[in-house]
């Protein structure tokens, strides 16, 4: 190399490297040798790293590396640690009745957090990720409860489900289809009366007749005041919440051929402690009693 750069720059008196671009020559102000060694050191480091750690991609996986490091193993270990850290609380939840859990703020908070994540996995498909439900799927945030809204009752509902074939303790109720028992006009009149409890029906003249029909046909389940009955899961018809849709048409439809939602029982799927978590979480959403 040395013999190549003999040209000396006129102005600075510094030798050039011999490289020339369009008449411009690069002065040879040498970079320090340690700089080059540092560069070599990074290469050596890279080789060492490639041997010690997973690096070279193969067809289905990569080379393992001598140290046997794997980010997946790290995550697994972290998860195991997290599980171990939760063990104490989880055991206490498993062994305590739900009232005791509710009375212990720390345990309750733990149950709410655990319930929130179990809810996302198991319940959100029907009730929505915010537990706000939808038509035919109850909103769990409000204070309207078909089967009761204290933690114990909620636990019972979640554990054994509603109209669920796979569980003998499941909650059962069935509204008869009134298509065979009432004429369409009578059903319309009944719907007008039900609506009149919270709003103004389209034809107020029908309300008087509907009231009579309601007392004869519906009051046995929904109550004389139409406020429903939790014994049989009969909804409150005198409040602002409509599970199967709002308005006279929706009420008439439900009378003619009732739709019944089914909820599976969860205790056999997720186990008793998780159902406790879920019950306490649902109770905490704001409508719990």
């Amino acid at each position: 190399m040395a013999d190549k750069h003999k040209h000396v720059d006129d102005i600075s008196g510094v030798e050039t490297t011999g490289h020339e671009w369009d008449g411009i020559r690069e002065l040879n102000n040498p970079i320090p040798r340690w700089w080059v060694y540092t560069f070599y050191a990074t290469i050596v480091w890279a080789i060492g790293h490639a041997i010690a750690y997973p690096s070279w991609p193969l067809l289905t996986e990569s080379t393992k590396g001598l140290l046997g490091y794997s980010s997946r193993a790290v995550v697994t270990a972290e998860l195991a640690n997290a599980k171990a850290a939760q063990a104490g609380n989880a055991e206490r939840i498993a062994s305590s009745p739900i009232e005791d859990i509710m009375a212990d703020p720390e345990l309750k908070q733990f149950a709410i957090s655990a319930g929130a994540s179990a809810f996302k996995v198991n319940c959100a498909p029907c009730h929505g990720s915010g537990a706000a439900g939808g038509k035919g799927f109850p909103n769990l945030n409000d204070n309207d409860w078909l089967w009761g809204g204290n933690p114990k009752e909620i636990y019972q509902t979640i554990a054994h489900g509603i109209r669920y074939d796979g569980d003998e303790e499941t909650r059962v109720s069935e509204m008869p289809a009134f298509a065979d028992m009432l004429t369409p006009d009578e059903m319309r009149a009944t719907a007008a009366y039900v609506l009149s409890l919270t709003a103004t029906p389209s034809n107020p003249a029908l309300v008087e007749l509907g009231k009579q029909l309601f007392a004869d046909n519906c009051a046995s389940c929904h109550g004389a005041d139409a406020k429903g009955s939790r014994e049989v899961g009969a909804p409150n018809l005198a409040d602002a919440i409509w599970l199967k849709g709002e308005g006279e048409q929706a009420i008439t439809d439900q009378m003619r051929s009732p739709k019944h939602g089914v909820m599976p029982g969860w205790v056999n799927r997720v186990g008793d402690p998780v159902v406790k978590d879920l019950a306490i979480f649902v109770h905490s959403l704001g409508g719990g009693e």
Binding site: G128, S129, A132, N139, N143, D144, I241
Partner: peptide
Amino acid sequence: DRNPQYVVESDGSVR
């Protein structure tokens, strides 16, 4: 709260 943004209670009040 983002989800649900509001909740209608049984007496028609909004939470």
